[in-house]
C-alpha cells in the first residue's frame, strides 16, 4: 500500500500513513493542536493550514469548498476531517 508522511508542524511530529488516510485520523492521536467540531465537514472548526504539499491532498468537495468560504479560509486551508493524505505534506492549525 502506498504510504505518505504527514508532518504536524505545531508539535514537530511526523507520521507515516497509508495513502488515503484522513488528517483527522492521525492528528488527535499524535497530539496535534487541530480542534474538531462536527467531524463531518459542516462546522469548519478543524480548519487546517497546509504549509507544504497542498497538491498531495485530495481535492476539496463542493461542500468543503462552501464551508471553507463561509469560514473565510485563506488559500491552502483545508478541513482536516475531510482532506485525505495522498502524498507528503505539512500542516498546522489554521
Amino acid at each position: 500500500m502506498a504510504k505518505a508522511k504527514i508532518t504536524f508542524s505545531d508539535i514537530d511530529q511526523t507520521v507515516n500513513v497509508p495513502a488515503g488516510t484522513r488528517i483527522i485520523e492521525v492528528s488527535e492521536k499524535i497530539g496535534a493542536g487541530i480542534i474538531y467540531g462536527c467531524r463531518e465537514g459542516d462546522c469548519g472548526t478543524c480548519m487546517t493550514h497546509v504549509e507544504e504539499g497542498w497538491n498531495n491532498l485530495t481535492e476539496p468537495s463542493v461542500l468543503e469548498e462552501k464551508v471553507l468560504r463561509e469560514n473565510m479560509a485563506s488559500r491552502h486551508d483545508r478541513l482536516a476531517c475531510q482532506a485525505q493524505i495522498l502524498g507528503d505534506c505539512k500542516v498546522k492549525p489554521a
Binding site: K5, D12, Q13, T14, V15, N16, T21, K29, I30
Partner: peptide, 14 residues
Amino acid sequence: SGEKGRVIDFAELG
C-alpha cells in the same frame, strides 16, 4: 518513541 523528530508509523498510534 513519541520523541520529536522521529517518524512514527500510523499503526503505532493504536
